[in-house]
Design a protein around this nucleic acid. Structure first.
Lengths: 209, 209
DNA sequence: CTCGACACGTGAGGC
DNA sequence: TGCCTCACGTGTCGA
């Protein structure tokens, strides 16, 4: 309302203010609105792309769509961090690690163990036997091999560890597991155990987050 | 420009058009602009959240930010589809599947196999031996166990399969692998093989995208 | 001064 | 009718 009368007002204003920039301003104003329109097109185009990318979020409020996008990004980011950062590309050095997992699962102690070494046939079986040898159970295992080197991550349920090894403390259980894993790793080597400590790197990280 | 004169124009218009809705429209107009302002706040709020969520995309154009978000969502969606949809939560029915992977890795045929069955100690070792029995090599393995049921995904390098089994065609190699995996699965059962086909579900999906 | 990005108010259209 | 969402043109600030 009042816009159709605004023509008179603005023309009056134009006559009053700048006399020389009459048609020049007209072009400037038009280019301005066109540029703004293009900007909106870019934004809404990306918004439409996101709408297509999200499965459930067709026909959604522009704001609600963005909220949904935020949710999805958070979910996916968490998923990736869970499984991808942990099992990274195998490193150059041989490595064995054991650490307590955060107390999320509930009953039974959960331990996270990883081994990085040269790949060889049967390695998976040997690791599995090592796990069994300390009375642990693999809840979840992941392994990646590239360029002849392999890295395995084992999420182990060590039950109520005290029951299976009454005389052991928790620390002994961990080092038993670690020793078994080291044994698997060293079975690959030419010489026996004399370079044991030399090959040990940042093993048995504990409580790292 | 002309807006400061618009006050006169609009009041004139108000006097001319509807005499009774004078102050009512004033309130309506104000509420409208306020609502619109709130709408903008919601959108920009979510936009800011996304800005914080993306690592590299601080201080970015609003449109460029959305483009970056689109990119991230595509990346993450691909990642998740690669490793998470395949290794989903173990189903209720026993299942063995073998399929050719897309030709991404380069040399050597890559086969993707999965097994879903009841969990038991030593299952991992048996699966590993089954893989070895068909002269395949595990490039990558993933396994998830929940509620006593387990599902494993194996990405196998079957080398140049023709070399290890000269008389075999590719199809025979696949079914050999599948038979070995079925053998592992059935070792768990009470009765032997009579319910073989009853337990077979959507096994040996092939070429699915 | 021009260009690009932003927030604002406003008209149109959908429940 | 009122409320809501959207696109539009515009004023404004900063390179």
């Amino acid at each position: 309302m009042g816009v159709e009368f605004g023509g008179d007002c603005s023309s009056t204003a134009a006559l009053l203010m700048s006399s020389k920039t009459a048609a020049a301003e007209a072009r400037a104003v038009r280019s301005h609105s066109e540029a703004e329109r293009r900007r909106r097109q870019r934004i809404n185009g990306h918004l439409a792309t996101l709408r297509g990318l999200l499965p459930c979020a067709a026909r959604l409020d522009k704001a609600a769509l963005l909220a949904e996008v935020v949710k999805r990004v958070r979910e996916l980011r968490k998923r990736v961090e869970e499984v991808e950062v942990e099992v990274a590309v195998p490193g150059e050095g041989d490595e064995v690690g054991v650490e307590e997992a955060e107390a999320g699962g509930g009953q039974g102690r959960v331990v996270r163990a990883w081994v990085c070494c040269a790949d060889r046939p049967g390695l998976m079986s040997e690791l599995s036997r090592a796990v069994q040898s300390v009375r642990a159970r693999a809840m979840r295992a992941e392994m990646v091999t590239v360029g002849g080197r392999t890295r395995s991550l084992l999420e182990l349920d060590v039950g109520d560890a005290a029951a299976t090894a009454v005389t052991m403390e928790a620390g002994d259980g961990r080092s038993a597991l670690q020793a078994a894993l080291w044994a698997v790793l060293l079975r690959n080597q030419t010489g026996p155990v004399e370079n044991f400590s030399k090959r040990a790197r940042k093993s048995t990280r504990f409580g790292a987050t």
